[in-house]
Computed example of a mutant assay.
Amino acid sequence: MTTRAPPATEAAKCRDKPRLHHGVCEPFMVTCRPLGGVDNLKIIWWYIAAIDEDESPSAGEKQFEIQWFGFEKAQSRLTFAMDRDVVRKAIQIFDASYAA
């Protein structure tokens, strides 16, 4: 993924430019969704991850059910247009990473 975050091996004073890194573990995007009222804001950190399709997902939080979807189905299941835009961007980043 291309990121402006410098790797730990670079000097503290390096040029501010996007760099391609593999194995990045930072979110690629953050979105904020007002939920009504002055103090009610949902902050969503978005990550891109690779999975082993032959493995079952490990247990997450009790109140959530983990489900895996392909690119197209994931987009169609999302309620909010902004979330679909984020998934489209994730797909572009994924495709660019494998094209490089």
Rank of each mutant, 00 (worst) to 15 (best):
M1G: 05
M1L: 07
T2N: 12
T2D: 12
R4H: 15
R4T: 15
R4Y: 15
A5N: 11
A5G: 05
P6I: 12
P7I: 11
P7C: 14
P7T: 15
P7V: 12
A8V: 10
T9R: 08
T9D: 13
E10T: 09
A11I: 07
K13S: 08
C14E: 09
R15G: 10
R15W: 11
D16W: 14
D16I: 15
D16H: 14
P18K: 09
P18W: 06
P18Y: 07
R19Q: 04
L20K: 08
L20D: 11
H21Y: 11
H21P: 00
H21R: 13
G23P: 02
C25W: 06
C25I: 06
C25L: 09
C25K: 14
E26N: 12
E26T: 12
P27G: 04
P27F: 03
P27H: 07
P27L: 06
P27C: 06
F28Y: 10
F28E: 00
F28C: 02
M29G: 03
V30W: 10
T31L: 08
T31F: 06
T31N: 10
C32T: 15
R33P: 01
R33M: 12
P34C: 06
P34T: 08
L35D: 09
G36Q: 06
G37F: 08
V38H: 14
V38F: 14
V38A: 14
D39N: 13
N40D: 11
N40S: 13
N40C: 13
K42Q: 15
K42P: 00
I43Q: 07
I43F: 04
I44H: 02
I44R: 08
I44Y: 03
W45L: 14
W45N: 14
W46E: 03
Y47P: 01
Y47F: 15
I48G: 08
I48H: 04
A49N: 15
A50P: 00
A50T: 11
I51Q: 04
D52H: 04
E53W: 03
E55G: 00
E55T: 05
E55F: 03
S56L: 10
P57L: 13
S58L: 06
S58W: 02
S58I: 02
G60E: 02
E61P: 01
E61I: 05
K62F: 03
Q63F: 11
F64Q: 04
E65L: 10
E65I: 11
I66T: 12
I66V: 11
Q67E: 07
Q67R: 13
W68F: 13
F69G: 01
F69M: 08
F69Q: 05
G70Y: 03
F71D: 06
E72L: 03
K73R: 09
K73T: 02
A74H: 02
Q75K: 14
Q75C: 09
S76G: 01
S76H: 07
R77Y: 03
L78Y: 00
L78H: 01
T79N: 10
T79C: 03
F80A: 09
A81Q: 13
M82T: 09
D83L: 01
R84V: 12
D85W: 02
V86R: 05
V86S: 03
V86P: 00
V87E: 00
R88P: 00
R88W: 03
K89C: 08
K89A: 09
A90R: 00
I91G: 00
I91R: 01
I91F: 03
I93T: 06
F94D: 05
A96R: 12
S97R: 07
S97E: 11
Y98Q: 14
A100L: 12
A100H: 13
A100I: 10
